[in-house]
């Protein structure tokens, strides 16, 4: 009884704001409500910290006590610190060693995986992808054991077979770089392969058929169809790899064991930042490092974009091929 009464009472109350609440207004309210969690959380944990980094970069701040405005002093300190430049150099070298071969090998593997009549395709896909699923921490631990300084380390044992003496992987300039680049290469190769594979599979087969009918060789097909149409994917992976390379952190940290043990051979920009902040309590210089890194990443992103777009001829061919495909469909 009471339920029915309540219902008859509330019904008109609910329709009343309905008149003011037009469809468009309802849409608006619901739309803004459902997207607001992202914007609120991003404002607090994404945008504000970024902007605050720019502010903090001009302050002297040890975590407790007052902040003090120091102008460009933090930037001057970093730029005059040889270790900062060493960290840039290291990041560049390890980034290049870790990612460039990865993109090339990834493309070759994807091409192999995409060729017709290959059995165990899903086994290969899972195998290639497993490193990416593993945490960076686990990868870094396993590789730091493989590249251990002892003669009993796997790498040193293998080198011993060829008569090369045991290498002190974490104290020699190139030992550190080779070991860390290998971790990066290993962990991301499968990811890039699978991305390239998806890109290859999105290329329509009739393009190749048409080319074959016109007498194009396999090399010509790769050069004039595969590569141009794969360009957006290549751009995407290069972009991700570049940004990822600049943020190299966990691999060297774990390779050396502790933050305090990181040698300058393995110092990366983010490690430098982290050390300034959480070991030296110099949050101002840490933020200044973050700001510099921010601009470095922007420059590299733009550079990436421009360089990849420079291969304009290939891009136009890709467009032409796509247009041809569309026309084919219309007929």
């Amino acid at each position: 009884m009471s339920v029915i009464e309540r219902n008859t009472q509330t019904m008109p109350v609910r329709t009343k704001p309905g008149r003011w609440m037009t469809e468009a207004r309802k849409d608006m309210v619901f739309g803004y409500l459902s997207i607001s969690p992202f914007f609120i959380l991003f404002a607090i944990f994404g945008l504000f910290p970024m902007l605050f980094s720019f502010y903090l970069a001009f302050q002297k701040f040890s975590g407790i006590g007052e902040m003090r405005y120091v102008g460009w002093q933090n930037f001057r300190f970093i730029i005059e610190d040889p270790l900062f430049w060493k960290s840039i150099y290291n990041t560049l070298i390890m980034g290049l060693l870790g990612t460039a071969p990865q993109i090339l090998v990834g493309m070759v593997l994807a091409y192999a995986l995409n060729s017709a009549l290959i059995r165990f395709k899903s086994f290969f896909r899972v195998a290639f992808f497993m490193p990416y699923v593993t945490s960076i921490l686990a990868v870094a631990i396993v590789f730091s054991v493989i590249f251990s300084n002892q003669p009993s380390g796997l790498m040193n044992t293998l080198l011993g077979v060829f008569g090369v003496g045991p290498i002190s992987w974490n104290t020699s300039e190139w030992g550190v770089k080779v070991a860390i680049s290998t971790m990066v290469f290993w962990r991301w190769l499968g990811y890039n392969t699978i991305i390239f594979l998806a890109g290859l599979q999105s290329i329509p087969n009739d393009l190749y058929e048409a080319a074959r009918i016109d007498g194009a060789s396999t090399r010509q097909q790769i050069w004039y169809i595969t590569l141009p149409l794969l360009k957006p994917v290549i751009l995407f992976t290069t972009f991700l790899s570049t940004i990822g390379a600049w943020q190299l952190f966990v691999e060297p940290l774990v390779f050396f064991g502790r933050l305090g043990d990181v040698g300058e051979e393995g110092m990366t920009v983010v490690l430098y930042l982290y050390r300034e902040a959480f070991r030296n309590n110099a949050f101002g210089t840490a933020s200044a490092t973050a700001v510099l890194l921010f601009f470095i990443i922007i420059v590299f992103t733009v550079l990436n974009y421009v360089l990849t777009n420079r291969t304009g001829r290939a891009g136009q061919l890709g467009k032409a091929a796509r247009a041809a495909k569309k026309r084919g469909e219309a007929v």
Binding site: M28, G31, F42, G46, F48, P49, L56, F283, S287, V291
Partner: peptide, 27 residues
């Protein structure tokens, strides 16, 4: 759902994907 600013706000979300937010680690 259609609401004012939908396209711009969605564009803003895409832009935030490009920003490496780890750089705000200290703040």
């Amino acid at each position: 759902i259609k609401f004012p600013g939908r396209t711009v706000l969605f564009g803003a979300i895409l832009v935030t994907m490009m920003i490496p937010t780890q750089l705000g680690l200290v703040p």
